[in-house]
Write a protein that binds this DNA or RNA. Structure first.
Lengths: 172, 172
DNA sequence: TGCAATTCGTCAGTATACTGACGATTATCG
DNA sequence: CGATAATCGTCAGTATACTGACGAATTGCA
């Protein structure tokens, strides 16, 4: 196999160290790892974490429209179109024009979608377990608690905040 | 202002609850929040978190090539091309063909790039502070520690793992 | 009722990621 | 040295995000 040091001259050996320990950088990497673990565990089912989340939410909220779905799972309104389009292409959901509001599309899960949710469950659980595997039980619990706390209190800081169901849209 | 409940019928009120508390889902949201906070704080500088990370790493490792840069900051080799292209377009770095290895491109930071790194520092620090603001000092420290631990031990699970400088590329 | 303000889904444009593959180049070993 | 393996940067294709904007539809209020 070919080998050689790759252009790194160690000019400022710990110049990156601060960067590499920044929460933002670590969060980005943890996201990538978490995403990759899901794809790996759920390979046989051909869905992404994002598609899985949308599918579960549609299953829990039959007839939900796209914007409301975004509020439930904290997605961006612009992104969801493509996601549900892919779920539709895979026959996991149906998308029909809203009856009462013709601007909306009503989303319903299909039998195949329900089957997938049921069958993929072990892989989903395994993924969550693997993500936090490096921590012991006590740390794991604390980490999950802090994650929830961070996401809740920082909710408003992304374009896709979580919004309570049936709630009045707040001012910007 | 127009208002109406948005198609959500609360059919299975807590059907989403398990989903919304999954580490994977929370990590995705925290990533989005962290990214948005950075863009917001560093708006005046016109760089993304990813571009900032690359710039800092190039500054610390003059002449580094793209693949080695990927190993330092755990990026994907396919993605880095676009990132450094944008940095180059903004005159923050230079990219020249490698002298010893003509396959590579040697990356160097420019004066403007150094200036940006210096001037953006307060915004970067503010971002890190804001991300973890909901936690108290003790939690913050524990969270950072666990983040590092999770990322280190799960390192191999993404396509873009961190790799030690000048190290032998391991087998797959 | 009629009009202004909102909302829904979408579009174009940009940026980050990853898969699988490729030509060009370099390293390794027989 | 020469053949083979490995590596570098990149490409095409797909998926997730976000900005800003828009037409169509709905709501709220004068």
């Amino acid at each position: 196999m070919a080998r050689r040091e790759t252009g790194t001259d160690m000019h400022k050996p710990d110049g990156d160290k601060r960067l590499l320990e920044m929460p933002g950088h670590l969060i980005r990497r943890l996201h990538q790892i978490s995403f990759a673990l899901f794809l790996d565990q759920a390979r046989a089912f051909g869905v992404t974490p994002v598609q899985y989340a949308a599918l579960v939410a549609i299953n829990s909220n039959p007839g939900i429209d796209q914007t409301a779905l975004c509020n439930v799972i904290a997605f961006d309104r612009t992104t969801i179109g493509g996601v549900v389009g892919r779920l539709q292409r895979k026959k996991l959901i149906t998308r029909v024009n809203g009856a009462h509001d013709r601007r909306t599309k009503a989303l319903h899960i299909s039998a195949a979608g329900r089957r997938l949710i049921r069958d993929i469950e072990p892989a989903v659980q395994a993924t969550q377990r693997l993500i936090l595997a490096p921590l012991d039980a006590r740390e794991r619990s604390a980490f999950k608690q802090m994650l929830k706390h961070l996401v809740h209190l920082n909710n408003a800081h992304s374009r896709a905040p979580w919004r309570p169901k049936r709630a009045r849209r707040g001012r910007a």
